[in-house]
């Protein structure tokens, strides 16, 4: 498989740090929509999974998603996130979720569908952390279901679909051809 080169790592981390700053600014947004307790606000939580998907869709190499999400979380942490250290562990687990989905598709498919599934997997990762951290299993059942659906929907829409369209817009600038490994189609084009 393609090992990450210095340029891959550097580009991943730059993308991640940009999102890390967005993550930090997203904290107050979430804290304002959340206290109503009905968890509808958890839809915006999906923004916190986006770095992994975006970086993976751009670079298309194994390990990129987990590196990006961890780096984004460290960036958020270093600029003084109000969630403190917890963002680091959440970041690792969420990145792992994103990474696993792309791995299941053999690092071969980078469609909107796979992106959406990876967003859902990242949401699952964050929920696993919440069980340990926020005792969410002790919520009333209807409330827990609301929380899970809002979180999953947010992951799907923001970290999945939105990330996909963002990368598609980036592709038009031609910048992605700098970083992507040569694909099978490229080799076929040579044979013609």
């Amino acid at each position: 498989m393609n090992r990450l080169k210095l340029s891959d790592i550097l580009i991943t981390i730059v993308i991640a740090l940009v999102f890390g700053i967005i993550y930090k600014l997203w904290g107050p947004v979430y804290n304002i929509v959340k206290p109503f307790g009905l968890h509808i606000g958890d839809v915006v939580y999906g923004m916190w999974f986006i770095a992994g998907t975006v970086a993976m869709l751009i670079l298309r190499k194994p390990g990129v998603a987990i590196l990006a999400e961890t780096a984004a979380a460290s960036g958020e942490f270093l600029v003084g996130s109000e969630y403190g250290l917890s963002v680091l562990l959440y970041g690792i687990v969420q990145g792992l979720g994103t990474e696993l989905v792309f791995m299941l598709f053999g690092y071969k498919r980078y469609t909107a569908f796979v992106a959406a599934v990876s967003g859902v997997a990242a949401a699952a990762g964050s929920l696993i952390m919440d069980v340990a951290y926020g005792y969410i299993l002790d919520l009333a059942l209807w409330n827990l279901i609301l929380l899970i659906s809002a979180r999953v929907l947010g992951g799907l829409l923001i970290a999945g679909i939105f990330a996909y369209f963002l990368v598609e817009a980036l592709e038009k600038t031609g910048v992605t051809s700098l970083v992507r490994p040569a694909s099978d189609e490229d080799f076929k084009a040579l044979d013609k």
Binding site: K5, S7, L10, I11, V14, L170, T173, V175, L178, V179
Partner: peptide
């Protein structure tokens, strides 16, 4: 896109 290009050049 500009920062991706810049990161690539730096690497």
């Amino acid at each position: 896109s500009q920062s991706i290009r810049r990161a690539h050049r730096i690497a």
